[in-house]
Design a protein around this nucleic acid. Structure first.
Length: 575
DNA sequence: GCCGTTTTCGGCCCGACTGTTTTCAGTCG
């Protein structure tokens, strides 16, 4: 799968073209890059079918370049651009505050081509001497270099969650703030977030910003204006605060929640009616002549609430998780948005580990904690033979566990049904457990924890030969750490559908696997389960992260199997 | 360079902040 690789190449070409002061080509290349990046099919397959130009933003010229790169591994156009300006543009522009233009100047004046060059030049005081630069910009570059060198990894949603909730509640409790809402990719529940965007209203914006900037946790203040401010808090997480007027809150919520693609599509929809949409509201500018500028010109149509703005655009309110411009706007126009699954719909958790394998708690402790969360059932599914971990179940341990589960189920103090299953390893030998063993399981969960060269073949064979109920964390990716397996997804999903195998949406923060884009692609093909894969009692609480990904994948309640009551779940298994 | 229920040519989202200026370019979201 070379989608990401090609997208990066196209982004980089966009940067080079911007340096050359090209007007519109940079945007064209970046649009193409974004669409290649978010493509669910393999770009090589698209190329083989001769359908590159079907991709939005890819026309004749860019399609030719993609083809050249896929066929030869090189791109003459890119090499040419790069030889004119032999700069590691990706790395240099990753330093906050340095864009393509600055990168060019640094190269022409000081010969900076790498982050190391940049650091040397800044430390030697050479940058401050350049026209248009000063001491301040040089110091900013030095400050931001550290972050850039540490890598531009986006923070896992699950890790950002406690920080975001903490800051939200603290601002809400502060008398300087009226309304406070976390927006941005966090509100859309993207698997990773770059920073935390906060939108607020306040009677005295300046006082509110002072409070925000002087908080204990703030390590550095990047910007501190009248209506917006950015700070770095411990953990190197950036918080961006924006204060707006109360009557603008709805329009601002939409604007700052994004995504960018969603906003552009909304804005274009407004333009069709000779309206203008920005973070201050929706305005009728049909009688305004072009020389009049300013953010609030025209007659104000809407802006107080999100619903009002969407409504004025003839759209149903769109849940934040869907705002990716992947069809939600036409669906909202036709009143055909899905009634998305919610956390409160979840009745059971179908992957839970205990101390029998790599979990930390006993069967009873996990059952008790899940009961307190209101789950009606859980599936104990410790690792079976073949899993690449030290402690795994053998037949004897499985039998002991079965007896223990029986005791827990007979405990009158708990109002939860504990099911007994296994997380079986899909190996080149099959599942590594006997048919009899499978028969003893209420449900068989199966997954891969390695990087086989022929993953599709392995998975299809296991699907055919074993009574698998759930395919766990299908891609085996670890966000920021391990690339997903290169499965032939269409084939695997069709097989899962044929064999009545549910596909897991794993709620572990570093997994969130199946990825939401594929969830959306295959929601009419297979049924999903959302599982925490909890290894401790605390992790049972991660369910909301998985549900958010199911929502991003357009799942309705009926698309998620563990929203069924226990007796219906059994019925499905028997069918 | 891409795109089109008006268009195959003429448009392409929009505003805040910073640093260095003295009216603005560059960057970011």
């Amino acid at each position: 799968m070379k989608n990401k690789e090609l997208a990066d190449l196209l982004y980089e070409i966009g940067d080079f073209l911007e340096i050359q002061e090209e007007q519109y080509k940079p945007r064209a290349y970046r649009t193409a890059a974004r669409n290649v990046e978010s493509l669910s099919e393999d770009i090589e397959a698209v190329h083989e079918q001769g359908e590159l130009e079907q991709i939005t933003g890819v026309g004749e010229s860019i399609a030719e370049k993609i083809a050249e790169y896929l066929e030869t591994g090189e791109l003459a156009y890119y090499e040419e651009l790069k030889s004119d300006l032999p700069v590691d543009i990706d790395a240099i522009t990753s330093v906050e505050g340095i864009g393509p233009k600055t990168a060019k100047k640094l190269y022409l004046e000081l010969g900076v081509t790498t982050l190391e060059d940049l650091e040397r030049a800044a430390e030697a005081g050479e940058i401050a001497g350049l026209e248009g630069f000063g001491e301040k910009s040089q110091q900013n570059i030095l400050d931001n270099l550290e972050l850039a060198k540490r890598g531009q990894e986006r923070m896992l949603l699950g890790r950002a969650f406690p920080i975001a909730e903490d800051i939200e509640s603290r601002l809400q409790d502060s008398k300087e703030f009226n309304r406070v809402s976390i927006v941005g990719s966090f509100r859309r529940r993207r698997p990773t977030v770059g920073d935390i965007d906060i939108l607020a209203t306040a009677d005295d914006p300046k006082a509110a910003i002072d409070t925000f900037c002087t908080h204990d946790d703030v390590k550095d203040v990047l910007a501190r204006g009248e209506t917006k401010s950015s700070v770095i808090v411990s953990g190197d997480l950036q918080l961006d605060l924006r204060i707006v007027g109360p009557e603008e809150f709805g329009a601002a919520l939409i604007y700052f929640t994004g995504s960018k693609a969603h906003n552009i599509a909304l804005r274009n929809r407004a333009i069709e009616s000779e309206w203008k949409l920005n973070e201050y509201g929706l305005f009728d500018v049909s009688d305004i002549d072009a020389s009049q500028t300013g953010q609030r010109v025209g007659e104000r149509i809407a802006g107080d609430t999100e619903k009002e703005v969407y409504g004025a655009l003839d759209l149903a309110w769109i849940p934040p998780e869907l705002r990716e411009d992947t069809g939600e706007i036409p669906a909202a126009a036709d009143q055909e948005l899905p009634d998305l699954v919610e956390l409160t719909d979840i009745r059971g958790d179908l992957q839970v580990h205990t101390e029998y394998s790599d979990g930390s708690n006993s069967v009873y402790e996990m059952a008790e904690a899940a009961d307190e969360l209101g789950r009606e059932y859980i599936l104990i599914s410790d690792h079976g033979p073949g899993a690449p971990i030290p402690d795994k179940l053998d037949v004897e341990a499985f039998d002991r566990q079965q007896a223990e589960i029986r005791d827990v189920n007979e405990d009158d103090g708990l109002d939860i049904t504990v099911l007994h299953g296994i997380e079986a390893e899909i190996t080149d030998q099959g599942l590594g457990i006997s048919d009899e063993w499978c028969d003893q399981c209420d449900l068989v969960v199966a997954g891969i924890h390695s990087r086989p060269s022929n993953p599709t073949e392995r998975v299809l064979r296991a699907f055919r030969e074993y009574p698998i109920d759930v395919f766990a964390h299908p891609s085996n990716r670890l966000i920021n750490e391990r690339e997903p397996l290169e499965l032939e997804w269409d084939t695997v999903m069709d097989a899962a559908s044929d064999e009545d195998i549910a596909i897991e949406i794993n709620a572990q923060p570093e997994r969130l696997d199946l990825d939401w884009q594929r969830v959306q692609d295959y929601r009419d093909t297979v049924r999903y389960v959302v599982s925490t894969d909890a290894h401790t009692t605390r992790e049972l609480d991660l369910m909301h992260l998985g549900v958010a990904q199911a929502r991003r994948g357009w799942c309705k309640t009926a698309d998620v199997l563990n929203t069924c009551p226990f007796d219906e779940l059994q019925l499905i298994d028997e069918v």
